[in-house]
Simulated scan of single mutants.
Amino acid sequence: MSVKFETNSFSRIKVLLTLRGLRQIDAARKLGISSASFSDKLKGDIRFSADEIAKLADLFGVSTDVLLGREPLEVV
């Protein structure tokens, strides 16, 4: 059984962090930014760049379309 998450991209990133057992600092390091900047991006105060979205997709093993909400986030 799969569960589909119809959420915004910020919520999807939070869900994926939890599912992958990662912390925000882990993702921030992957992006080469501070944890404070990553937190601001998750809150929507600062936008993620296209390069950052691509790196997060690689980190989580999902497509950029999933992160951007063009495809559903499915958890099996």
Rank of each mutant, 00 (worst) to 15 (best):
G32H: 12
I33H: 02
R47P: 05
R20T: 01
K30W: 02
I46W: 10
A36R: 05
V15Q: 10
S2T: 11
E6Y: 00
A36H: 04
P72V: 11
I53R: 05
E6S: 01
V76I: 09
I46R: 15
R23M: 01
D26P: 09
I46L: 14
V3Y: 07
R12A: 13
A28L: 10
R47N: 14
D40K: 01
V3G: 06
E52R: 03
I33C: 04
K14Y: 07
G21L: 12
D26A: 07
D40F: 03
L42A: 00
S37G: 04
A50E: 15
E71P: 07
D45S: 14
L19W: 09
L22D: 01
S37E: 01
L56Y: 09
E52T: 03
L42V: 00
S34R: 06
I25W: 08
R29K: 15
E6G: 01
I53Y: 10
M1P: 01
G69R: 13
S63L: 15
G61Q: 09
Q24F: 04
E52P: 02
N8F: 08
I33W: 00
D26Y: 08
P72R: 09
G21Y: 12
G61F: 07
K14T: 08
A57D: 09
L67I: 10
L31T: 11
L31A: 09
E71F: 07
R47S: 12
T7F: 05
K14L: 09
